[in-house]
Amino acid sequence: MKVTVTVNGGEVAAEVADRTLLVHFLRDVAGLTATNVGCDTSSCGACTVLLDGRSVKSCTVLAAQADGRQVTTVEGLSSGSEELHPVQQAFRAEHGLQCGFCTPGMVMASVSLLAENPSPTEDEVRSALEGNLCRCTGYHNIVRAVLAAASERRPS
């Protein structure tokens, strides 16, 4: 079927099989390979992207379900390494990543959290990231990074 998705502000249209998953549409059709396939069973969150502004696991969403909608991947948060999104900046400053595999999903889940709750407590950050697994077990610094990004964005 013909699927048209607005990805990071630009339209991506393609004829794909009905069973195409959104994560494969993003990686193989749109050529955006930051979004990782981890567990492929909607457990690990490595494939987290924003669908109409809210975090979803793109391994469990059909491309057809995103037809006509807005998707944001980590590539859409900033224009390059010189101009990082505040959440990306905080992950770098607080050493919120080790191997980096979970990072795109962690960042997108964090962006979704801060859009819904701009001033989360530490407990709220930990709950909000329950669906994102870090295989390096670097959770403490990830939580610190999200809290730092939140305080950075808060007007003082």
Binding site: S42, G45, T48, L51, S55, V56, K57, T60, A109, G131
Partner: peptide, 9 residues
């Protein structure tokens, strides 16, 4: 239920 991503869908 599940996690935020699951609850969004």
């Amino acid at each position: 239920i599940g996690d935020p991503q699951v609850r969004h869908c």
